[in-house]
Nucleic acid binder design. Structure first.
Lengths: 216, 216
DNA sequence: TCCTTAAAGCGACAACAGTTGTGTTATGAT
DNA sequence: ATCATAACACAACTGTTGTCGCTTTAAGGA
């Protein structure tokens, strides 16, 4: 939601610095046009040539914009990806409701698997970039924080149905359910296992029902 | 164990190419000396300046060796780190035996947490490098494959004690137990939670005893 | 000891990343 | 319409990364 603000704060002065003259932002015409063209160029370049050919120069050239413009507004590739990810915030995304905890977690994991194995994957590219760029790392943190927060309803529903004890730590449960997928695909870099989403969901649900994520 | 071989295979021709003249490798004197000095330089540079200042030039300068030598033998920073990791293979490492599954997994997780939060962490550096260098990615895969294989005894013992059902998939259980730590520290990049190793171990052990990792 | 040649040294080079100073455009307020 | 200036364009520059061809050194076999 704060995508535009966050990017503009990178470009110019901090939006909430002086309390008087308000340096007069310019969200209008050209700036917006340039931004749209650059972000489009990032997406296209990513799709056509993958992450390792996603350089500032290539993006600028493709967008028909000068290099310095990109450097000044986005700083580096990580900044570009961060903006793309913020923009692509599916503000209406919600976790599926399948009727029980294990099903909900499995559906979630299938989405994660899909997002991570899509070629090219913006998420995977952003993860790679997050090891080089602070902006990308922050964007990724924001993205996951947002997602995990939205997923807490899954646990709420499970508590209401009596599947897991009250006081279950939603965040820990969700991490336990999804972490094996990230480990498998991102860190171990093994080919996707179609059964893994279900397996991970099942073991997490089992542990949760046994009270593994409930505090005393 | 195959550290020297793997590196040399990068430098020269494949060791098992021709079956006759055997191009005459030279593991002796100078080569070994240079290799030792370069790898030492990598370790020192990593300790003193961290991963982002671990460049080929800096390593070469510190080792008193020419840049091209490093480029030709190790290709890039990832190759250097891969060699360091292979060399540092604690060939005698074994998982602790605490008496029960949860304790074993917790001990394991504490080691992971320690290795990942140590500053500087060779493991963390290698993970970062694995997103840029194929050599680093391979070394990391080898490292983890080796570690997970060594850890399978933990599951064997648990099966023998009757803590988990027979036919429990050791690999999946171990990944489930350790993945949350990697997710937390490497991907989410949150400050280490001293309770997380125990928590993750507990939930994995619970799921395992409920048969979550046993195939029919 | 001599000889072959793997491996290291050396310098020059190209490609790229990133910065800075200055001029130009056009936005948004008057 | 006019004007101040935010935002982009342009060019020139620096430093880094990685490569290439050639020369020199020394390892290991005769």
């Amino acid at each position: 939601m704060t995508s535009v603000t966050s990017v503009i704060s990178v470009a110019g002065r901090n939006p909430d610095d002086g309390d008087r003259p308000v340096p007069a932002r310019r969200p209008g015409g050209r700036s917006a046009r340039v931004r749209a063209r650059v972000l489009d160029a990032v997406r296209v370049q990513l799709v056509e040539h993958g992450y390792d050919e996603l350089t500032v120069d290539a993006v600028a050239a493709r967008a028909g914009v000068h290099r310095t413009t990109v450097y000044r507004r986005w700083r580096d590739v990580g900044g570009l990806l961060a903006d793309v990810l913020d923009t692509a915030g599916d503000d209406d995304w919600r976790p599926e409701d399948t009727g029980d905890l294990e099903g909900d977690l499995a559906a979630l994991n299938r989405e994660v698997q899909e997002a991570l194995t899509a070629r090219p994957s913006v998420t995977a590219a952003l993860i790679a970039a997050s090891f080089r760029s602070a902006e990308a790392a922050d964007a990724l943190r924001r993205f996951w924080a947002d997602r995990y927060t939205r997923c807490e309803v899954v646990v709420d529903r499970a508590v209401r149905r009596g599947e897991v004890p009250e006081g279950t730590d939603a965040r820990r449960l969700l991490v336990a359910a999804t972490a094996p997928l990230y480990h498998h695909l991102v860190l171990l870099r093994m080919p996707p296992d179609p059964r893994l989403p279900g397996h991970a969901a099942r073991s997490a649900a089992l542990a949760a029902s046994a009270g593994a994520f409930a505090e005393p």
